[in-house]
Amino acid sequence: MEILKTYKLYIGGQFPRTESGRTYPVRGANGNHVANACLGSRKDVRNAVQAARKAQSAWAVRSGFNRSQILYRIAEILEDRKAQFVSELISMGSSTADAQNEVQSSIDRCVYYAGWSDKYQALLSSVNPVATPHFNFSVPEAMGVVGVVSCQRTGLIGLISQILPVILGGNTIVVIANSDQPLGAISFAEVLATSDVPGGVVNILTGQIAELLPTLAGHMDVNALSLAYIDADLLKAAQEVAIDNLKRCSVYAEDFTLQTSQGLAFISTFQEIKTTWHPIEQLSGGGSGY
C-alpha cells in the first residue's frame, strides 16, 4: 500500500499541524487532487513569529563563514533529494523539463548565496571621513524577523530566492508559501530541518495569503516584509498595517528562474546600516581623515 505524506507546517524546527485543524486540497495541472495542505491561521502566524524571534539573536551572532557552511549544506541535501522535488513540481503542474531546470537552478542558487554569506559585510561596510576626532564606520546588521510571501508563480526557486539572501544576513523569517503549489515549500522545510539550519530560523506556513498576510504585516515584532506577486488590494492593505513599526516592504515581480534574480541587492535590502562614532585622540597635524 502506498503511504501518502501528510504535509504540515514548519515552525520552530518542528512540523506541527495548523492550530486551526483545517486543510485545503492541492490540485495538479489537470485539476486532480494531489494532496491536502494545512490551511494556516493567524495563530500559526503568531507562533511562527514567536519562534523566529526566539531564534534570531543566536543566528545573527554566528559567523558569516558558519552560515555559509549551512547554506552549502542545504544545497547538498537538495541535490540528494532532487528526484523528489522534480516529481513534486510535476505533480503540481510543471513540465518535466521546467521542473528539472527549476530544481537545478535552486541548487545553484543555494551555492551562490552560500558564497555571499561571509562577503557581503565587506561590500556594505565603510569607513567614513568625518571632521571630528572620531573613527567613524558603518556596518550592516540584520533587521530581525522578516515576513515573506513567497513567489506565487513557482513552486521552489522563488521560495529559495526569497529565503536565502534574507537568512544569510542573520535574519530569521516567516514564509507564507505559494498557496496553489505549497508542496515544494514543505518538502524544502524537510531539507532545512536536516541541514543544520537551527529551528526557528526559517518558518514556513501554508494557507491563504488573504487570511495570513494582514496578521503578518501588522505584527509589531516583524521588522520587514518581502512580498512577491501579490494582489494589488492585498498589497495596499499590507503596506498600510505595516506602517505602525515602519516595516520595510520590498515588493518583487521578477522571474526568479533567471540568474538576474539573484545578487547583493537581495541581501542588502534586509540589512540596516549601523554607524558608530568611536572617539579617538586628536591627531596632531592633520593628515588622515579618520
Binding site: V45, R53, H219, M220, D221, D244
Partner: peptide
Amino acid sequence: TGKYQSATY
C-alpha cells in the same frame, strides 16, 4: 490594539 506586539516597545 488587535495587533500582535513586540517586546521592543
